[in-house]
Every structure is written in structure tokens, then in C-alpha cells.
């Protein structure tokens, strides 16, 4: 049954919306200029590619965090999840190359499972996600210490580590393409496609107004749980890359949750949900990483990182609140 005469429309071109990302792109460009002034080699293909490969984990984590934040929740557990995954992977592989792929699968499944638990506790038991994932953070930290008796055991195989540290060398023009960068490009594309799909649009609407979404037939709890699972999955992939790049330690994922949240906020995504793009979140991560590189080149102590992150979060949220409340 057709209830209303539909009015035919002139065909419309889909516009690419850059407006929201413009400030971030400007910041990114300025940082790039500052870095190049200090270190002209930075823009050389080899070093640029290495930088992008190195940034892949935090960009992936930012994308994962984005799904959760845009749906109106938080995921504080990703940093400790990365640590747990790296330590567990080392012990399971125990330097045996043949175990590489099974362990990779176990890690991916483990990430999704942690996300599922986060999601179910948040949506079914109605524990605020801030608390749920803080609890999960502590549980994972403690469990990993307990399981490994205080010192990481075993070791990662070279097959495992290549994802995070190797590259296609001697590529024309670009010189080298890190595996991590390829992984990132594939997953970033998938993330963008996901956000353009019906699921992605409903996810944002859930974050904007869960009541409206529910009364439009959306499964709000399920949607949010899936967001947590995606974040867990992103953490697992980040763990694979980080383990490969920097090896096994209890510090492998320390502070990454805040890095990811900072990146997402910097990318113009509203805390509380309903606004912002996954591209913005990932560019935010890139900007943050570039900022740290800059600090490094200018000899600013790495110990200042948390301070800088904190300042960025406060500043970005203050700015976006001003921008969106004034009509």
C-alpha cells in the first residue's frame, strides 16, 4: 500500500562534507610544517611511511573507541586489553612459529569477547560504561600479573612480529610500505564503509537519542554491545601490531585508552555520542601522534605526554561544547 503520492525530485549529487574536519586538517598541516622545519628528512618517503606504520595501532584504537563513544558510551579497558593480549600471546606462542596463526585468532576472539562482556554488563546490567570498562581495565591488569606470576614469559615468534615491524622494502616512490600501514588502510576503509551502512547510521542515532532510536525500532542494547565488540577487536589488532613493534612488556598498552579517547575528542567527536565521524577520530589519532613526534624532535620530555593529552581533552571538549550549544 502506498500511502502518499511521492514527489519526484531532481537528482542530487552526494556532497562530500569536509566542513567538520577542516580545523583538524589545519592543525595537522601546521604540525607537519613545524616538524619539517626541525627535521627536514621527516617528509622523506621512508621516514613518513615508518611514521604512519608506527601510528597504525593508535589510529585503530581511535577507530574502535569511536564506535563506542559515538554510541554514547566509553571504553577505558582497551589499554589493559592490549597489554593482556601481548603478554598472553607471548606465553601461548612461546617462540614457536607454528603457533602464530592460531594465537592471532585467539587474540581476535579474545578482544571481541572482552567487548561482548563490556557491552552486556553496560546494556543489560545497566552499569555505566565508564565504570564497567574501568572495572574491566583493573581486572585485566590484575589477571595478567596473576597469570604470568609478575614477569612476562615465553616470547613472540618472528612470524608474529613481522606485522608490526616489517615492511615491503624498495617500493618505487614510497620506498617502503609497513605491513602495519596496509593493515590500517584496509581496516580504515572497512570502518568508513561500516559507518556509511545502515548499522553505522543507526549507531550514531543511538548515541544521539537512544529513546528515539528504540521507538524507531532499533535494538539499542545490541547496537551498543556491537560497538564494544568492535572496540575490543580493534584492541586485539593493535596488540598484534604493538607486540610486533615494541615487544612484550607489562607496559605494552599502558595509557592507550586515554590516547584513543584524546584522539577521538580531538577528531571532533562529541563525548556523549551522536556526533562526529570515524575519519575525524582517526585523523585525530594521527594528529596526536604527530604532536608527540614534534615534542620529541624539540626535546620535550616524553613524561609530559599525559599532561598534553589531558589539556587537549579539556580544550577540545570545551571548544566543541561552545560550538554546538550556541545556535
Amino acid at each position: 500500500m502506498q500511502l502518499l503520492q511521492r514527489r519526484p525530485l531532481p537528482p542530487q549529487l552526494t556532497r562530500v562534507r569536509l566542513g567538520g574536519l577542516l580545523p583538524l586538517l589545519v592543525i595537522l598541516a601546521v604540525l607537519l610544517v613545524l616538524v619539517t622545519v626541525r627535521q627536514p628528512d621527516f617528509l622523506a618517503p621512508a621516514s613518513l611511511m615508518s611514521f604512519l606504520g608506527r601510528s597504525a595501532p593508535i589510529i585503530l584504537l581511535a577507530a574502535g573507541q569511536y564506535f563506542v563513544i559515538v554510541s554514547g558510551e566509553f571504553d577505558l579497558s582497551v589499554g589493559s586489553l592490549v597489554t593482556a593480549q601481548v603478554v598472553v600471546a607471548a606465553r601461548l606462542i612461546d617462540s614457536d612459529p607454528s603457533r602464530t596463526w592460531p594465537v592471532v585468532l585467539v587474540m581476535l576472539a579474545g578482544g571481541v569477547l572482552v567487548g561482548l562482556v563490556n557491552g552486556l554488563i553496560t546494556t543489560r546490567l545497566r552499569v555505566p560504561s565508564f565504570i564497567t570498562t574501568l572495572g574491566m581495565f583493573l581486572i585485566l591488569v590484575g589477571a595478567v600479573y596473576l597469570w604470568s606470576n609478575g614477569a612476562p614469559k615465553g616470547g613472540l615468534s618472528e612470524e608474529f612480529r613481522r606485522f608490526g615491524r616489517r615492511a615491503f622494502e624498495d617500493v618505487p616512490v614510497l620506498d617502503r610500505i609497513p605491513y602495519a600501514l596496509l593493515v590500517l588502510l584496509v581496516l580504515a576503509t572497512l570502518a568508513v564503509l561500516l559507518m556509511r551502512s545502515d548499522f553505522g547510521r543507526v549507531l550514531v542515532a543511538v548515541g544521539d537519542n537512544p529513546r528515539t532510536a528504540e521507538l524507531s525500532g532499533a535494538r539499542v542494547r545490541r547496537t551498543r554491545t556491537i560497538a564494544f565488540m568492535l572496540s575490543g577487536l580493534a584492541a586485539a589488532i593493535a596488540a598484534i601490531l604493538i607486540g610486533g613493534y615494541s615487544g612484550v612488556s607489562f607496559q605494552a598498552g599502558a595509557g592507550l585508552e586515554f590516547g584513543a579517547i584524546t584522539a577521538v575528542v580531538l577528531g571532533g567527536v562529541a563525548l556523549g555520542g551522536g556526533r562526529g565521524s570515524v575519519v575525524g577520530a582517526m585523523l585525530g589519532a594521527l594528529t596526536l601522534e604527530l604532536l608527540f613526534t614534534l615534542m620529541n624532535f624539540y626535546g620535550v620530555s616524553g613524561a609530559l605526554r599525559p599532561t598534553v593529552q589531558g589539556a587537549i581533552i579539556l580544550f577540545a571538549v570545551a571548544v566543541s561544547t561552545r560550538r554546538f550549544t550556541s545556535r
Partner: peptide, 30 residues
């Protein structure tokens, strides 16, 4: 169902007109 509380239950305020109009189609019949 069109709720009496338009702001609280009817619209997703920060989404576009089009996204709001597509919400039920997307959510129920992806």
C-alpha cells in the same frame, strides 16, 4: 507511532533531516 514527546522520543536532534527520516527503515529493515 508518533510520540507526544517529540524532543525526547521523536527526533535524534543532531542528526540530519534525512538521517532522521531514514531511521526506522535503517533500524528495522537494514
Amino acid at each position: 507511532y508518533v510520540s507526544e514527546d517529540r524532543k525526547g522520543e521523536g527526533i535524534a536532534a543532531r542528526q540530519s533531516v534525512l538521517d532522521n527520516a531514514l531511521l526506522a527503515s535503517r533500524a528495522v529493515f537494514p
